[in-house]
């Protein structure tokens, strides 16, 4: 009876969809289809985060991992004309299994104490509490809109700002790397002319 609780059913359904789509994403030869399977797989993982009681992480998963990353991936599949990808030796499945079995054993044996806690006994993390944790200093006393006071445990305001700078540097760097008259192409031009490298030389 208990096995058919709504959240248990939702967990098994979402997990099955996510695992099948992940398998499709790593085995399909057509990379556009693989990227699409990846997008829907991440979409279903957002359901897992929602189930866990982290609505903000779920929404971020939808926006970034299920939205932005597959779109950029499909762009680059088109730009590098690599719609089809062969698989190497399928023996690597054995390696993956060899890693997966210890991980599964660890998942079921090394975390014994929380395993007796059901998901329904945990408290969901509100977006407000997450924002306070993210954007405050450690140890600060903050009064939430509900009136209760919380002490900040994480306090990652500095790491948040550093992450913003890392994103900026990464995006500017990728623009510079992807320019047609890129520095890398200038260094290597002449040694190995490629299809687009020649076109860039002709433009210059």
């Amino acid at each position: 009876m208990e096995a058919f609780a709504p959240n248990v059913l939702a967990f098994y359904l979402i997990s099955a969809v996510a695992i099948i789509l992940a398998i499709l994403a790593v085995t399909t030869a057509n990379l556009v289809r693989a990227a699409l399977a990846l997008a829907f797989g991440f979409f279903s993982l957002a359901g897992i985060f929602w189930l866990l009681g982290s609505p903000f992480v779920a929404v971020l998963q939808l926006v970034v991992n299920a939205g932005a990353i597959p779109i950029v991936t499909i762009f680059i599949v088109m730009m590098t004309q690599s719609r089809f990808s062969q698989l190497r030796n399928p023996l690597f499945a054995a390696v993956a299994l060899l890693v997966a079995i210890p991980l599964l054993i660890a998942a079921f044996s090394f975390f014994p104490s929380p395993a007796t806690t059901a998901l329904t006994q945990t408290t969901p993390l509100t977006v407000e509490a997450l924002g306070v944790e993210l954007l405050s200093q450690r140890g600060a006393e903050v009064t939430l809109s509900s009136g209760e006071t919380m002490t900040v445990q994480a306090g990652t305001i500095l790491a948040f700002e550093v992450t913003a700078i890392i994103l900026l540097v990464a995006f500017v760097g990728s623009i510079i790397l992807a320019r047609r008259e890129s520095l890398i192409l200038k260094l290597e031009s002449g040694s190995k002319p490629a299809a687009e490298g020649k076109a860039a030389d002709a433009d210059a």
Binding site: V72, Q81, A178, S182
Partner: peptide, 9 residues
């Protein structure tokens, strides 16, 4: 992805 574009070129 920017690096892969360079590899392709």
């Amino acid at each position: 992805l920017a690096l892969f574009l360079n590899v392709f070129r």
